[in-house]
């Protein structure tokens, strides 16, 4: 065992003296005792990740309590105030972000739409994650025909243009929120299925899994105890990225008119409805568009941070001081 500090290795490979393990100040990486707390502290070290997390929390809160605060502002039509420009309080605080062609408050509509958008995106991701992961882990662990059949099914689903599939299904059946969630979930299942299968297949040949087999542990017990805890962080990171995709997909569907139907409102629908007014009332499409973009970026940044933070072998990268990475051979004259 050489000890060499390369990019991929960690300081953990340096041997630890038993006597010196008593004193563990901020210590070696994160001790199990500090589990959750140190994850939080790690988050605070990364400014971008912290900001992203805050944004997502803010949007989540908006979706939760916003609509009740807005009351019926989102639906109240007032043609006197139609198509008013934003960034002025002249018409009252509720029209700070402008109004649409029916005089409804943009601010209120954005808030209410956030709930709709999230209530489609989050369940879709959750269902796909749950079904895809369990299926993938099972297929990957057992290998053989189970793996092959599962992968072929995944291939079939993935080779359908997902938007086309969604259009067809939602046209045939009514485009209710539940149907949208189901079809979005179905088209995303293969992502989790493949990832979970690949990780599970690699894990099941690892030595500690072999060790468990030597005790006579049943496959399901091994999957629950060894495979899922290792695979879960990757899948959660994937889910965060998928969240963005699903949100955009729902926006596209609404844009095409087969997603959320009026009088319900989602960000995608708002973008669609503002299409014909782009020249005259740009805020009708731009604000909901910005909302989508901001949420997506925040989720992406957080996902990138999460990927490193949930891997015990990589976590040290987040704790490094930000210094120069290029070595210089120091000039001899500088020596005392």
């Amino acid at each position: 065992m050489k000890s060499s500090l390369t990019e991929g290795s960690t300081p953990e490979q340096l041997p630890v003296a038993h006597e010196q393990q008593n004193e563990r100040k901020d210590g070696k990486q994160d001790g199990k005792q500090d589990g959750k707390l140190s994850l939080f502290r790690l988050l605070l070290r990364d400014r971008f990740a912290t900001v992203s997390a805050l944004i997502l929390v803010f949007i989540g809160l908006t979706a939760l309590v916003g609509p009740s605060l807005m009351g019926d502002l989102a639906t109240k039509q007032n043609l006197l105030f139609a198509n008013k420009a934003p960034f002025t309080l002249a018409y009252g605080w509720e029209y700070f972000l402008g109004s649409d062609s029916l005089g409804r408050s943009m601010l209120a509509r954005l808030v209410v739409a956030s709930r709709t958008t999230l209530s489609v995106a989050l369940p879709a991701v959750a269902v796909a994650l749950f079904v895809g992961s369990l299926w993938g882990v099972w297929a990957g662990y057992h290998r053989g025909w189970r793996e092959n059949v599962s992968m072929r099914i995944a291939d079939v689903i993935m080779s359908f243009p997902s938007l086309l599939l969604a259009v067809v299904v939602l046209y045939v059946f009514s485009p209710s929120a539940a149907n949208i969630v189901l079809i979005l979930a179905l088209t995303r299942i293969p992502i989790y299925l493949r990832t979970a299968r690949a990780e599970s297949a690699e894990l099941q040949s690892r030595t500690f899994v072999d060790a468990a087999r030597t005790f006579g542990a049943k496959p399901n017990a091994i999957i629950v105890r060894h495979v899922i805890p290792v695979v879960l962080p990757t899948l959660l990171t994937l889910a965060t990225l998928e969240f963005c995709y699903v949100m955009l997909a729902e926006s596209s569907l609404s844009f095409l008119g087969i997603g959320i139907q009026p009088p319900d409102v989602s960000w995608g629908l708002m973008v669609s409805q503002g299409r014909q007014y782009l020249q005259s009332a740009w805020w009708l499409s731009i604000f909901p568009g910005v909302a989508i973009v901001v949420t997506t970026i925040a989720a992406n940044v957080l996902a990138a941070w999460l990927r490193i933070a949930t891997d015990p072998a990589q976590r040290w990268r987040l704790a490094l001081p930000r210094k120069r990475l290029i070595a210089r051979i120091p000039a001899k004259e500088a020596k005392p």
Binding site: M1, K2, S3, S4, L5, T6, E7, Q13, L14, P15, L325, I326, A327, R328, I329, P330, K335
Partner: peptide, 25 residues
């Protein structure tokens, strides 16, 4: 044994140390 610095010495001789390492003296 491992961690004694012999590989690091070799890398210093050959000039192929990692960027986080400095030849201090």
């Amino acid at each position: 044994e491992s961690g004694c610095g012999k590989s690091m010495t070799a890398k210093a001789l050959a000039g192929i140390m990692d960027p986080v390492c400095d030849l201090a003296d």
